[in-house]
């Protein structure tokens, strides 16, 4: 359950739709970002419509602004971080004070500084995982949905496999196995590279299933028939005619992948299976600070957690706004 948010729920319902009960209309799940009624080819007016609707979603706009500003702040950590990440001398933790606004951790390291570096890593991981999994997932999903055949079969069977085993378990096994191991081509991966790779491998399948479903229904539509009749090649139809119609659900799902990836990464790091020192993520910060729960130093748990909550919440609001903007019907 902990690895499941709205994204995986979508996927599991998609699973039901495609394998078990084809009669169930997907609109049963109103939370689903996935919509299948985008039947018209895109027109400029549609994008204008989208932007107009999105602008109305004030929470989403605010979230977008917050995320951009926050990411800029944490990206230029050499300018924004008040202290070096690893000071030369260690000291016991001290609560929030004027020199260290959010206090220092159990090695005397400035908590604000660590949170800036950690948030940068966490957000970057979320972003990269979303980009990689969207690129791979869209391509594979498009091919599988359009051509069907063995690619489709392989995709469905492999994703079935991952529906059976909890995601956290898959990732934990993979992380434990590959950590500190010299791989044939990549060499020894840093813990962050490794986690990005593993999460991308997990999430592209979800995107692929979403895209596959969209392609499956869109390829039967009349305007595609028309394009086919006019002699367009399969690839051209896929990427010039169908793909633009799937942008909405894909973007929404990409946003959700960002949120899920950040949450999963923090959970893994908390369990000691994710980011390892010297790298620092919000999850590993909380893992380090776990011993202070119940003491007056519990702020070491509260602050990174609140920042993480803020980031993921903003991403989810953004996703919600995007969904509404792409598909006004889904809003009740």
């Amino acid at each position: 359950m902990k690895t499941r948010g709205s994204l995986t729920e979508v996927s599991s319902d998609q699973e039901k739709v495609t394998t078990a009960a084809p009669e169930v209309p997907p609109s049963e799940v109103s939370l689903a970002p996935l919509t299948q009624d985008a039947t018209e080819p895109p027109a400029r007016s549609q994008w204008q419509l989208f932007f107009r609707r999105f602008r109305r979603h004030r929470l989403a706009i605010a979230s977008l602004v917050l995320l951009v500003v926050l990411y800029l702040v944490v990206s230029f950590s050499h300018l924004t971080a008040p202290y070096p990440l690893n000071p030369k001398t260690l000291s016991p933790p001290r609560g929030p004070n004027l020199t260290h606004l959010l206090g220092t951790d159990d090695l005397g390291r400035d908590q604000t500084t660590r949170m800036i570096y950690a948030a940068h890593l966490s957000m970057t991981i979320g972003l990269l995982v979303a980009i990689f999994s969207t690129l791979i997932g869209t391509f594979v999903g498009a091919v599988a949905g359009y051509f069907g055949g063995w690619i489709d079969q392989v995709l469905m069977r492999v994703t079935d496999l991952f529906l059976v085993v909890p995601a956290l378990v898959v990732i934990a096994v993979a992380q434990q196995g590959l950590d500190q191991k010299k791989l044939p081509i990549f060499g020894k991966l840093s813990s962050s590279t490794l986690i990005i790779g593993i999460l991308s491998i997990l999430f592209w399948m979800y995107i692929a299933r979403v895209v596959r479903g969209l392609f499956l229904s869109l390829k039967e539509k009349e305007f595609i028939e028309a394009a086919r009749a006019s002699g367009a090649s399969s690839w051209r139809i896929m990427f010039r005619h169908i793909l633009p119609n799937t942008i909405g659900p894909i973007v929404v799902n990409t946003t959700l992948v960002v949120a899920q990836a950040i949450l999963l990464e923090s959970t893994l790091s908390f369990l000691g299976l994710g980011i390892k020192p010297p790298a620092v993520s919000l999850g590993s910060m909380m893992s380090d600070a776990e011993q202070w729960v119940g003491t007056h130093n519990a702020y070491l748990i509260y602050f990174p957690g609140l920042l993480l909550l803020l980031i993921v919440l903003a991403v989810n609001f953004l996703g919600d706004g995007l969904r509404d903007a792409f598909d006004p019907q889904s809003k009740h």
Binding site: K2, S266, T267, M286, L313, F317
Partner: peptide, 14 residues
């Protein structure tokens, strides 16, 4: 939204 955006372990520790 908050519930879905919050890591479980953090809620537990809190």
């Amino acid at each position: 939204f908050v519930g879905l955006s919050m890591p479980t372990f953090w809620f537990g520790l809190i």
